[in-house]
Design a protein around this nucleic acid. Structure first.
Length: 491
RNA sequence: CGGGGUGUAGCGUAGCCCGGUAUCGCGUCUGCUUUGGGAGCAGAAGGUCGUCAGUUCGAAUCUGGCCACCCCGACCA
């Protein structure tokens, strides 16, 4: 392992790419745009999954699984949805290979094994799911349907980046069906809140909740709600979306129910998802030039203990002295790695665990051992202090909580310092180059948004739910506006 | 998909212009000494030079196709 990462200040995207690889989160694979998520990275994803899944269950959802493939005729049923995703679909056309008669040992696609109907590898599952719901819903008593699925999807992106945009990615997609518009809208908002809570409390990352503008809305949705987070380079990252689908999919797939009055109605739908992109957010939001900084709640292990060997000591001296501490930590539910591998020197381990973002490192040498103490170092602040072994476990437990909130506070402060109320176009153009979220008035038209995007690469990240009503003039056109929206360059 | 760049041992690289037995560092293996911030010494292993084709007596080097990755655009519900 060579020393040192690229500096964030010098090349942010190179820093990100290197960090993903060096911290053992993921690597590129033999397949274009598809990554291998390595064990250390996957452990973080599993912790995210666990927390989210618990939250979905608490809000009444259950998991199910639908097919990877969507017959083309189903895929095209909801026109806007189909059109929105058409350009990035992988399509299965054949079901068999055979030996190449002209090239021994090689295979060719058997031209006689052409599918009657092409299968689309799901870029999202609304089509196959709503087609299924059609058979599940007859009466208002069959509603609501509250289902989530953990799955992989494929979107054939032109340009990919590990975690942020890969051709295949892992996600969850919730798909719900309701009897009333209000119930569906409440569900849409509820799941946005679940996402916001998760990202803020588990990932220690503050988000802005809001509506997407029409330009940025999910294809096939009536309304898209989202949470937007700020990365350390001042760019925005969409961390999750929750869509109010209206009756669009119910109409496209003919999903009707008989209401209490005996009348037939189309059901109301929602869908919502977060993906492995959250990993990208986690990495970019907190990490520094030494490596990852992980919030304790998502770290694969929260504490690493490094004994510093000394020939004058009994080989098991550290293990014996530390056993009560480790047992105590484990009894608090804290995950601990005791690293007494003698192939690496302490300095190497310090650097390695900093790279991997382990929240707390404890180191103990002969001097400490004799004094009955241990060094406790925080990854987030890089500060160290020496604590008595007695009571150190509960100190560490509290410190983990403190780190969890300190990381949040740091990210929150950064975001506050990089959000600007902008009222003139000149200021807008100047500030967008420096990054950050620009709170501006906007006249509400797609044309204006498009023009601003062409001029500055900035898009409307969201129209905040808590936007204050105030008189103002559109940043570009000067037309009247009633509230500020968030403009930023985005991942 | 357009413009630019890169591809040589597990990783990072020199060599390429000007064709002739492949360089260095990290890592790995063995041994000894070490261990409080990426250890030292000694020895060793490890290569279809991205891939396919062409030119040539001879190709990492020249030519062309393809593939992958990186940067800048376009694209990204």
């Amino acid at each position: 392992m060579s020393k040192g990462l690229p500096k964030r200040s010098e090349n942010y995207s190179e820093w990100y790419n290197e960090l993903v690889k060096r911290a053992d989160l993921a690597e590129n694979s033999a397949v274009r745009g598809c990554m291998v998520i390595k064990p250390y990275g996957y452990s973080i994803w599993e912790k995210m999954q666990r927390a989210l899944d618990d939250m979905f269950k608490e809000t009444g959802h259950t998991n199910a699984y639908f097919p990877l493939f969507v017959p083309k005729s189903l895929f095209e049923a909801e026109e806007k949805n189909a059109e929105g995703f058409a350009k990035e679909c992988a399509v299965v056309t054949h079901y068999r290979l055979k030996s190449d008669p002209n090239n021994p040992g090689k295979l060719i696609v058997d031209p006689e094994a052409k599918l009657e109907e092409e299968l689309i590898v799901r870029p999202t599952s609304e089509a196959i799911i709503w087609n299924t719901y059609k058979n599940w819903v007859q009466s208002h008593r069959d509603l609501p349907i509250l289902i989530n699925q953990w799955a992989n999807v494929v979107r054939w992106e032109m340009r990919t980046r590990m975690f942020l945009r890969t051709a295949e990615f892992l996600w969850q997609e919730g798909h719900t069906a309701h009897a009333t518009e209000k119930e569906a809208m409440d569900e849409t908002k509820q799941m946005l809140d679940v996402y916001a809570t998760f990202v803020e409390e588990w990932m220690s990352l503050p988000v802005i909740k809001g509506f997407k503008s029409a330009n940025e809305r999910f294809a096939g949705a009536e309304e898209t709600l989202c949470i937007e987070a700020m990365m350390q380079d001042g760019k925005a990252l969409q961390a999750g979306t929750s869509h109010f689908l209206g009756q669009n999919f119910a109409k496209a797939f003919d999903v009707k129910f008989q209401n209490k009055e005996g009348k037939l109605e189309h059901v109301w739908g929602t869908s919502w998802g977060v993906s492995t992109r959250l990993m990208g957010a986690l990495i970019m939001a907190h990490s520094d030039d030494l490596g990852l900084v992980l919030p304790p709640k998502l770290a694969p292990f929260q504490v690493v203990i490094i004994p510093i060997p000394n020939k004058e000591l009994e080989p098991d001296a550290f293990k014996i002295a530390l056993k009560p501490v480790i047992d105590k930590l484990k009894s608090f539910g804290i995950s601990v790695k005791y690293d007494d591998n003698e192939n690496y020197k302490p300095g190497w381990k310090f650097a390695e665990y900093e790279l991997k973002g382990v929240p707390i490192r404890m180191a103990i040498g002969m001097r400490d051992l004799q004094a009955g103490q241990i060094e406790v170092a925080r990854r987030d602040t890089l500060t160290k202090e020496t604590r008595p072994l007695e009571g150190v476990a509960s100190y560490v437990r509290d410190l983990l909580d403190e780190i969890q909130s300190a990381i949040y506070q740091k990210a929150f402060k950064f975001r506050q310092e990089n959000m600007f109320k902008i009222d003139t176009w000149a200021e807008f153009e100047a500030q967008i180059e420096k990054g950050g979220f620009l709170l501006c008035h906007w006249d509400g038209s797609s044309e204006t948004e498009e023009k601003i995007k062409d001029l500055t690469k900035a898009t409307i990240r969201c129209i905040p739910l808590d936007a204050v009503l105030e008189e103002g003039k559109c940043i570009l056109t000067g037309n009247p506006s009633t509230k500020r929206v968030v403009f930023a360059r985005a991942y």
